[in-house]
Simulated scan of single mutants.
Amino acid sequence: MHGPASPGWLLVALCAATGAYCLLRMRSPVPEQRRAAGGEALMGFGMALMAVPAAVFTPPAWAWSAYAALFGAAAVRALWSARRSPHHLHHLVGTAAMVYMSLAMAASPDPHHHMHGGSGTPLLKGALLLYFAGYVLLAGARLVPAAVSAAGVPAGAARRWGDRPELARACRLSMGMAMVAMLLTM
């Protein structure tokens, strides 16, 4: 990332913490929540790795292609899961954005330009930025009047940290903001 490393490390910490919380959500008794949390954990940790400042670690050139393949497979899984739940369409767009950023980094002429490759399709980047900016605004608006009840949690079950809908919404909001920041630095 351009400039001081502090914003990059803050982005790494935000994405890693979000990924860790999503791992905690995978212990939920609700099967759909577990599936969604797995995809979100992959996105959180993947974004954290991608945001590590170049001054600290620059992955080898082949790593970006492997990254694109991993998130391409996750995109296929999200596409398959979208027939059950429209929330997976958001996962599909998120994994597609990660594939886009990975391919842009692989095509970057300077291997030391981590998270600011400068290559890629401006129209696609603009569409992804528009989508995630809108998603952040919508997710933020949904977070304000967060419901108190745990949707989908069986009656009588104790509400664990992994079953709190307002925390899941906050994680999705933070990953959306991180995606906007990462796309802006491309």
Rank of each mutant, 00 (worst) to 15 (best):
R159G: 10
G8D: 12
Y100A: 02
L137I: 10
A127H: 04
A48Q: 04
A74R: 02
A106V: 00
M177C: 15
A97F: 00
M179Y: 01
M115W: 02
A151S: 11
H87I: 05
S28T: 07
G152L: 09
P7S: 14
D110M: 01
M50K: 03
H87N: 05
S119T: 15
A69T: 12
M175P: 08
A141P: 07
M26W: 07
R172M: 11
A78W: 02
E32F: 01
L70P: 04
V99I: 13
P29Y: 09
G126V: 09
V148G: 14
G176I: 11
Y135C: 04
A20V: 10
S102E: 03
A55Y: 04
L124N: 02
G117S: 15
R164Y: 08
G152Y: 13
A170K: 05
R142Q: 12
A20M: 06
A82G: 13
G39A: 06
A61L: 13
A158D: 14
A41Q: 05
R84L: 06
L173P: 10
L103H: 00
A73Y: 08
R27H: 04
R84V: 00
V30M: 04
S149Y: 09
A151W: 06
A104S: 15
K125L: 11
R34F: 07
W62H: 14
G162Y: 07
L130H: 00
P165H: 08
V153I: 10
A104C: 15
E166I: 02
A104Y: 05
S81R: 06
P145S: 07
R142V: 02
A36K: 07
L124T: 13
S119K: 14
T121A: 13
A106R: 12
D110G: 03
G72P: 12
L14I: 10
V12H: 03
H113C: 03
P111K: 09
L184Q: 12
M175G: 07
P111T: 12
H113F: 02
A82W: 13
A16T: 02
